[in-house]
Amino acid sequence: MTTSTPVSTKEKPSSSAAGAPEKATSGNLLRAVKDKWALALVVAVILGLVQLSSMILPPFLFPGLGDIAMAVVDILANQKSDILITMARFVVSLVVAIAAGWIIGLVMGAFRSTVGALFTPLFSIMQAVPALSWVLLAVLWISDINIRIGFICFAISMPLIAIAVYEGIRNIDPEIVEAVDQFRPTKLQALRMLLIPQSVVYMIMSLRSTTAFTLRILVFAELIGAASGIGQRMQVAQTNFQLDMIFAWTFLLILVNFALVYLIDVAEKHLLAWRGEAVIR
């Protein structure tokens, strides 16, 4: 009754799977071109509005594109150290927040009824504390500037990452847990095979919002409580009424944000290459 049958011709692999070598289909290409055009259009409109406003308003209220460009050159020539200081603070505090948030989220997921139940309300309260309160408290509590700024970024971004990882573990498909459990793994094996890979997805997804938010908070913290860094430089520019410098710093921060998003995209493509991606046509 049974005969050896080769793979059915009906069994065609999914074509829209992410992680498959990208094919330059006409749809993809069109979308990419459209996206680039949209970005170029938005940038052109913003630059046009800035230039137009500078022609209408006095220069001390709204500098022209030329002045802003000069200010950018000035920053890149003479104030690189502030950019590097801010970036170093950002990287260190984000790495510490990611490491701590990831570990805490994993522990919360592994021990839901105890650690998970305890930390969830704690992080909810921490997230409800306004960023300004963290900044003001840190200024009063911590004298070392770098530790102060690191503390602020940590207090704000770590709970976001921990909760995202915890949610990820809670959302793990019970069917695949059962499929692995049939082989009777140890707790450590289950952690390595199931919880850690599952948490990576949610951690990376949370990074998208966390990095941009952390950078904004960091610059804000520098503005209030630091003697160096981009935030402090913007505060000096504001005091001296140097609007071209404020625009220039803002422009550079936007570029940094875009670079961060790009880096997260690269990390996502590399680490989550296995994910299938739904395409809405």
């Binding site: 069917e175 049939q182 082989f183 094996q189 095979m193 890979p197 990576v200």
Partner: peptide, 29 residues
């Protein structure tokens, strides 16, 4: 452990592992 295994109605593969790595899951454990 190691004496029983099961295939379900749905494949229940680990999506972050390749087909080969999925086949290796039980042996890894």
């Amino acid at each position: 452990q190691g004496l029983l295994s099961m295939a379900y109605q749905s494949p229940r593969l680990l999506p972050w592992r390749t087909a080969r790595e999925n086949v290796e899951v039980g042996m890894e454990i």
